[in-house]
Structures are given as C-alpha cells and as structure tokens.
C-alpha cells in the first residue's frame, strides 16, 4: 500500500502531554514538549539541526541530514516530503508544507536548513 502518515498528525488529533493535559496536535507549542520531557522519567529532548535536504530516488520522499544532540551526530533519514517535524519556536514544518496541509489539514511551515527540530533521546542513554 502507499506509504502514509501516522494518524496522530491529522488536524484535530488529541495528544496527551506527560502531565495528562489533552491538546489538539495543531495547538501544540514548543513548551508542551519541553515540559513533558521534564516530567518524563525516561525521555529527554534533543535538538536536531537540519544540515541538508536532498530529494530521494524514491518518489515523494526526501533525505534529511540532521546534526543530533550535544555531539552533533550526523543522522540521515528518508521521509515522505509531507512528514512534519516540530521546529523549536516555529511549530510543524515539512519539506512540502502545502502537501502536509492538503493531506492532514495541519498548518505547516517550510522546513529549511538550519531549522532546529525537536527529537527525543533516552535519559539514561550513556
């Protein structure tokens, strides 16, 4: 079947924060993720900076290279061009925001090199 986005990115999806509060996916703010990670005993927020965005040989996919965490580890991921990432202070962003909004009705900005996205890591990761 055609690759598709997880349902929780669809506008109106109910998201539960670590303190139990319920919010709609389109209303989430940077603070919601930061506070939830602070409450979580297992998860920590990592900053992942977009270093490159290349088109993939796979149609409708892009390859995004991130510098992840303190050590700026180089990680490349291949994602659907409409896959939304949460950018600090900016909100949902994707390589093809029009497509994201068309498919998910989720307001979305353009993901660009230099954007710092929220990612997760385990707190007890040595």
């Amino acid at each position: 079947s055609a690759p598709s986005l997880p349902p929780y990115f669809t506008k109106g999806s109910i998201i539960q924060l670590a303190d139990g509060e319920l919010k709609r996916v389109e209303d989430l703010k940077t603070e919601d993720f930061i506070q939830s990670a602070e409450i979580s005993s297992e998860l920590k927020i990592d900053s992942s900076t977009v270093e490159r965005i290349d088109s993939s040989h796979t149609p409708h996919f892009a390859i995004i290279q991130f510098a992840v965490g303190e050590h700026r580890s180089q990680v490349s991921v291949e994602v659907l061009v409409e896959y939304p990432f949460f950018v600090f202070g900016q909100g949902w962003s994707s390589c093809c925001p029009d497509r994201t909004t068309q498919l998910l009705e989720l307001p979305c900005a353009k993901l660009s090199v230099g954007d710092v996205c929220i990612s997760l890591t385990l707190k007890n990761l040595k």
Binding site: P7, I15, V25, F33, L43, V68, S73, V75, S76, S119
Partner: peptide
C-alpha cells in the same frame, strides 16, 4: 476518540540510526 501520547509525534534520531 483516540488519544495519542506526546512522544509519538517527535522522532528518536539517535546515532543508532546514523547512516
């Protein structure tokens, strides 16, 4: 109505996935 946990929305990009 399904409720999704906050941490499902953002990725783990740890080095275990580095290329």
């Amino acid at each position: 109505v399904p409720v999704f946990p906050w941490h499902s929305l953002v990725p783990f990009l740890e080095t275990s996935q580095s290329n």
